[in-house]
Structure formats: structure tokens, C-alpha cells
Design a binder for these strands. Structure first.
Length: 480
RNA sequence: CGAGGUGUAGCGCAGUUUGGUAGCGCGUUUGGUUCGGGACCAAAAGGUCGCAGGUUCAAAUCCUGUCACCUCGACCA
């Protein structure tokens, strides 16, 4: 049965090898994750796509709470004067800010920016809220959408409006702020690997690539199946860069007035793009069980025959009781084969088939989305077996992605090697720290420095670009 | 924002070169037969051809402008 026959069911999707970008676009549309809207560069998240985002939110938010953060909600509009207070910040964001100029029919005396990010409004509020060292640290986060007038947009990867979380914290000392910055980077790394099953490289950005207004920026970088890097999350240490112009000060134990040390960190709906391009295959989406809105597609087979639907409903109830997200697909308007393909395309981790023969045998047929393996599971203890299978799928998906990432990462010593390596993956190289050398890599290969790993064990002695003595280990890659 | 490409029924496309009755496949609706890897038959509905101007007796087709999307760059999460 043919492989050729199965192949022809892989309909509608552009083959991954033929055109990765088109494959990606096909997947997001055909899997009902999002749709284009009448608003330039803005997407509508459909229930299935938003369901993934909700699961990301829930599990990430739990980690924020566990590390002592609280959620708040800030205004969507930011007065221009606030945005102008930090020079690097405004310079970085000015080209992509959307402005509100009128209220009703009246022109505003001061225009209002639709937030591209909320450092400034958080600072303005922290200036009111922080008085004493006893108020610190203050560790807040918000889930919201922001807007950046991007010149070219792509679903999930770069849209004009996107949904995200932005954490903003203020601390009494530089040490605490740095600790927080690295802590949240670690939360992101752990989240990507354990929840999204997306392996990442964590490290520090170069000065050239750091956030507008930050003293230090750290990132987690994921590798997509085309070998390109996707920045999956960032964590910034601002020091007192914002608290000075915004006069966020506190009276310390020693009786002196000091500026707070501030951090911010964010991840966005881009994570969904990372999941698609890390795990997807020729059949479409492949979701890790932890963020799959539907973990199990339960399919009645020959449902017109007596007892099948009842057996399915019973199984559904047992799985739901065990905390498994299950969808009983009892639509009689589609054939079994059609449904198999549909749920596979949509990336549902596990499919259970229940027909008269299974019921007679006291079992159900299970099919894994990740390996396409089919196996019979006894009806007895089914929920436990399914839970175990889902865990195994989660683990296996991470291992396969990790293997890919490792195989597509190589140490390089020359520009020629670097140019070859970034065609298909990440290059680890020595770098002297000069911006000119980063620029040279970008000009020749359209690749950028991604980040400097925390393990700085040298992989050579000389800068891969200029040949001068170098002591920085840097990842280079083409990036989304 | 630069280079290239595409906009015709819900989706995918043909028709545009050479102006002359709006087409095909899938999907949708209704009825029937099917049902363990995208079933079949019959009937039906559905389009001011992205938008705005212009040329013409006549424009999906020619001209000008504009908007959106896709690819590759530059910029950015």
C-alpha cells in the first residue's frame, strides 16, 4: 500500500524540499492556524492556532509565577514624549512605530504611539510605584499584543501586530538585575526544549545585535530545518539606561537615592513558527504533545455499525478524565482515510482508531504522528498507555530535533568554511569582537552573529574574519 | 524600502500574446448508494475577473495609477 498511494494523499502541500518557504505558508494556512486579514501585515489567529498559543501561555505563565513574577496590564498607547526619553530606544524603534494622531475628529496635541514594546510605559509607572528599597524587586509581566510597522511580514515569524509576553523588572542592584536577566533566559531555554521540543543555543548578543537601549542582550536561538536561525526569545539587562532618564529611583538602606536596575524579556507567537519549522514534515504540521490543542484524534471506524460510537464515547470520557486533550471525530461526512490525512496534516500527535474488529478484540489501534508507527493498545489501562505514548512522542521529537541541530552545527576556522557552513546550518567560530568583522560576514554571506555561548572554551586562536587574535566564541547563521 | 512574481467562484487554476456570450477541477447545497488510508452517482447554487481611472462601439484581456500577497535582499522579535 503502497508508498505511492500514500504519497498521493499528501495533497495540497508544497513539498518541503522543493520550496521550504512555500511549504511553511501552506502549512499555516491549510492547518487552520491563521488567516490573512484586511489589515496590512496583520493576521487573524484561528482557533487551532490560538489554541497552541493558549497552551504556550499557560505553561510559560506558570514558570513566570514560579519565579516570582506577577501579571499586569498596561496601556496600548504611549505618549510620544515618553518614547523619546531614551535615545537609543527611540532611534531603534522610530522607523516602525504606528501613530495615533486624532481622537475622534480632533487632532491630538501630542501623538500617541501604538506600543511597539512597553519599556517606556513600564518605566513611567515604576517611577510612581517605587519609593524604597523595600519595594524592590518589582517583577511584572504582561501578555498583550504590540505593533511594529514591518516592511515585509510573514505569518508568525514577523507580523505587524503580534501577541507576546513582555516581562519588566526593577531591582536594587546590578547583580540582581543580571541574575534576573539570566534566570529568564534559562526559563526560555528550558521552556523551548521541554515544552516545544525545540533545542536552542543560549548566549549573549554582540553589541551590534543587541536590543535598542539595552546594556546586554541574551537570546535563545533555534535552528529551523532549512538551517536558518530563529531568535526564539530574548532577555535584556538595561542597567540604569532607562531608570536614569525616567528617574526611577529608590531610597536605599544607606539613606541615598539610587536608580533601579532594570530588565526586560520577551517571547512571542513567533514560537509557533519555530515549532512548525522545527518539527513539520512532508505531511504537514507535527505538534509536540505538550502544546497540541488536540493530543489524540479518536476515530470511529465503520461507525454506522452498532456499538462503535458508544465505545468511542466511552474511551473519550476515560481519556478526558485522565487529563488528555482528545477529539472524537464522529463526522459521518468524511471517510476514515480522509480523516487520517486531515489529522496528520494538522499535527495531532496520536491517532486512535476504534472499529468493530478492535472492540471484539478488546483493543484500539494507535498511530503515532512522529514515527508513523502503528500499534494495538489493550482497552484495559488505555489512558495510562496513551499518557506514556504522548510522553514518549514529546521526548522523541526533542531528540530528533536535537540531533538535527547538532549535525548542522560545525566549528569553522576560515571565511570559506563559514560561508559553506551557513548555507545549511550554524557555524561556531572565533571572533575578535570588532563590528567590522560581523559586517563582513553579513556582506559576504548574508549571515549574522547569533550569540556567544556561555561555554567560551576556544575553538581556535584567530578571528575567522580578520585573522587577528580572537578570544570570543560566536555562533554565526543566516536568520529569519 | 529595492529586484522579481501573482491577484479571475470558498480553494487551486485556464482564458490575457491577437479586445467580442465567464470556463475547468476541488469544495459547498440537496437526494441516494458507500464506509479499516482523501468513495461514487444525480441535480443545484456560487464570479460587477484585487481596486480606481483611462482608451474603445465593446476591456478579465490594452494603458496609467494604486492596494494586497509570495520569493530574494536591506531593516527588525
Amino acid at each position: 500500500m503502497a508508498k505511492e498511494k500514500q504519497q498521493e494523499f499528501v495533497q495540497h502541500l508544497t513539498p518541503r524540499e522543493e520550496d521550504f518557504s512555500q511549504w511553511y505558508t501552506d502549512v499555516v494556512l491549510k492547518c487552520d492556524l491563521m488567516d490573512y486579514t484586511p489589515v496590512r501585515g496583520c493576521m487573524a489567529l484561528k482557533p487551532y492556532g490560538y489554541g497552541i498559543w493558549e497552551l504556550i501561555q499557560q505553561q510559560m505563565d506558570a514558570r513566570f509565577k514560579a519565579t516570582g513574577h506577577k501579571n499586569v496590564a498596561m496601556p496600548m498607547l504611549i505618549p510620544e514624549s515618553l518614547l523619546l526619553k531614551e535615545a537609543d530606544h527611540v532611534e531603534g524603534f522610530a522607523p516602525e512605530v504606528a501613530w495615533v494622531t486624532h481622537g475622534g475628529n480632533e487632532k491630538l496635541t501630542e501623538r500617541l504611539a501604538i506600543r511597539p514594546t512597553s519599556e517606556t510605559i513600564f518605566c513611567a509607572m515604576y517611577a510612581k510605584w517605587v519609593q524604597s528599597w523595600r519595594d524592590l524587586p518589582m517583577k511584572y509581566n504582561q501578555w498583550c499584543s504590540v505593533m511594529r510597522w514591518e516592511k515585509s511580514t510573514r505569518p508568525f515569524l514577523r507580523t505587524a501586530e503580534f501577541w507576546w509576553q513582555e516581562g519588566h523588572t526593577v531591582h536594587a542592584t546590578a547583580e540582581e538585575a543580571q541574575e534576573e536577566t539570566l534566570l529568564m533566559l534559562e526559563v526560555y531555554r528550558e521552556f523551548c526544549e521541554n515544552v516545544l521540543a525545540v533545542p536552542v543555543y543560549a548566549g549573549q548578543k554582540s553589541d551590534k545585535e543587541k536590543f535598542a537601549g539595552a546594556r546586554a542582550t541574551y537570546s535563545v536561538e533555534a535552528m529551523m530545518q532549512d538551517g536558518k536561525a530563529l531568535q526564539a526569545g530574548t532577555s535584556h539587562n538595561f542597567g540604569t539606561n532607562f531608570s536614569e532618564p525616567f528617574e526611577v529611583q529608590f531610597l536605599d538602606k544607606d539613606g541615598t537615592l539610587k536608580h533601579v536596575h532594570e530588565t526586560s524579556w520577551g517571547t512571542s507567537t513567533r514560537l509557533i513558527g519555530a515549532v512548525i519549522m522545527t518539527h513539520g514534515d512532508e505531511r504537514g504540521l507535527k505538534l509536540p504533545p505538550k502544546i497540541a490543542p488536540i493530543q489524540v484524534a479518536l476515530l470511529p471506524i465503520a461507525a454506522h455499525k452498532g456499538g462503535v460510537l458508544e465505545a468511542c464515547a466511552d474511551i473519550r470520557d476515560k481519556l478526558v478524565a485522565a487529563g488528555i486533550r482528545v477529539e472524537l471525530d464522529d463526522r459521518d461526512t468524511y471517510s476514515a482515510g480522509w480523516k487520517f490525512n486531515e489529522w496528520e496534516m494538522k499535527g495531532v500527535p496520536l491517532r486512535l482508531e476504534v472499529g468493530p474488529r478492535d472492540i471484539a478484540a478488546g483493543q484500539v489501534m494507535a498511530a503515532r504522528r512522529d514515527t508513523h508507527e502503528k500499534l494495538a493498545l489493550p482497552m484495559e489501562g488505555l489512558a495510562d498507555a496513551v499518557t506514556k505514548l504522548l510522553d514518549d512522542i514529546q521526548r522523541s521529537m526533542y531528540e530528533i530535533a536535537l540531533d538535527f541541530q547538532q549535525k548542522r552545527t560545525a566549528t569553522v576556522k576560515t571565511m570559506e568554511e563559514l560561508g559553506e557552513q551557513v548555507k545549511t546550518g550554524f557555524a561556531m567560530a572565533m571572533w575578535c569582537g570588532e563590528r567590522a568583522c560581523e559586517n563582513a560576514v553579513k556582506e559576504r554571506f548574508s549571515a549574522t552573529s547569533r550569540n556567544m555561548p556561555f561555554d567560551q572554551t576556544p575553538v581556535g586562536e584567530d578571528c575567522v574574519v580578520c585573522g587577528q587574535k580572537a578570544d570570543i566564541v560566536m555562533y554565526f547563521a543566516k536568520a529569519y
